[in-house]
Design a protein around this nucleic acid. Structure first.
Lengths: 237, 237
DNA sequence: AAAAAAGACTGACATATATCATAAGAAATA
DNA sequence: TATTTCTTATGATATATGTCAGTCTTTTTT
């Protein structure tokens, strides 16, 4: 975990333009920039733990992070994956609560840490920015409600198909007819996204493969028939 | 659905003190009060539908409302129940999206409608109030994440036990050793809260009864052994 | 009050999925 | 390179829960 303080100011940061900081006026960008800390993280490292106190927010520069909760049976429920331009941990800060979930690096990452005060000051002195954050929060809530509904009303097969489609949307690289999911997740992690047992994922993946919906290339998954998966996922019902 | 415009100003409203409006300065309370509309609703009426455009927020004066999503199989997933002092629909407004869920009256209710402009103006001119709303939103997100995790990792039996405990907490009236849930929900609605089939709820409820955890009095449920239910719900694991 | 509709309940049954066990393959470590 | 550990894969098995069907009860409507 290496620190590059000040390294690349936010003013020049490419991933900032993807983020909620995109339209921040220069003055505020500078406040953030002066206070941020860019840190490199390796796969497997923890960004924060459920139950601990948030001291700031994280802005992902590169890499992938999984945000998850650990259930009482020890299994991880992955709430979402975050990538370049995404903010992490602002919900706990705004909720004035300890983290309600944990975050772990899934793909080597560079992440800026912005201390609480700098972030909140900017927020409270810039209503448009505050609005944007709140909008993101509201959207996240809607997404989570959707996930809950899917979790209770859809089968594992449907949910897995849906997760694959989403992974394709976010991490897919096109190649002819196919779409390769360019992100290495263990079967256990995929199970954590779907909310099922690892063995079920493995079994269903080989079923999907047999049905020519996907192809398996080691840990990587290639989507061969997106529409087929969509049909299976009950996406359009 | 009867309208009592202006009826009982917010300044004097008892349920306001329970709400996010609690600490609003007088000036802003008046803005809200001048614009609000108190409406009486009967059980079964719809407050808003998923997919429609929000025109304001709702503040519950009395009664109970269920907020739910309709899954592709037609079943309702109840996201939460709201009662006196609760706000409804602000998430869609702040997310600048159509409603992501629907709301229906479960117990006859009096509800104030506050038009979008009055609400947003107050919000954007009162940072502490905006903070409080955002805090509530963040908290809701955490709760939803917890529900998702429970939905994927716990059994129906555990989830039903947990729902009963929560209903006891929110709508329970004490009576000796027992706690009566003073809210009439159909078995189908309880199933919607748990995220399961109606028959499963019925079966499990009679099992709980046989195990002396609860008692059934028509539609009403009486909790006889809260700790037993908590143990069953894996609450402390 | 009678009729109709909706809801609660019980039983039979099918099956998706979790769990356990074991083996093969891949990756990490010595 | 050898050894150990982790991950993927496959099979066998148990069971919780969904679905369908039918009866009884309660509520609503006429």
């Amino acid at each position: 975990m290496s620190v590059h303080s000040g390294n690349t100011p936010c003013e020049l940061c490419a991933s900032r333009k993807l983020s909620l900081f995109a339209d921040l006026p220069e003055q505020h960008v500078c406040t953030i920039s002066d206070n941020k800390n860019l840190i490199s993280h390796r796969k497997g490292q923890i960004l924060f733990y459920e139950g601990t106190k948030p001291l700031g927010i994280f802005c992902i520069n590169s890499g992938v992070v999984k945000v998850y909760k650990t259930a009482s049976n020890g299994k991880e429920q992955i709430l979402h994956l975050s990538k370049k331009g995404d903010f992490l941990g602002y919900s706990a800060l705004l909720g004035e609560e300890n983290y309600s979930n944990s975050a772990m690096i899934v793909e080597d990452a560079k992440i800026c840490f912005i201390p609480k005060e700098a972030f909140l000051t900017t927020l409270f002195n810039n209503t448009p920015f505050f609005k944007r954050i709140t909008k993101a929060l509201s959207h996240e809530l809607g997404v989570m409600e959707e996930k809950l509904t899917d979790a209770t009303q859809k089968s594992i097969r449907e949910r897995l198909a849906f997760v694959l489609i989403q992974l394709g949307n976010s991490y897919g690289v096109e190649g002819g007819e196919n779409q390769k999911i360019d992100l290495v997740l263990s079967r256990e992690e995929i199970a954590g996204m779907v909310g099922t047992a690892t063995e079920s994922v493995i079994r269903l993946l080989s079923e999907f493969k047999k049905d020519n919906l996907i192809e398996l290339e080691g840990k990587r998954i290639i989507i061969k028939d997106r529409r087929g998966l969509a049909r299976l996922s009950d996406f359009y019902a």
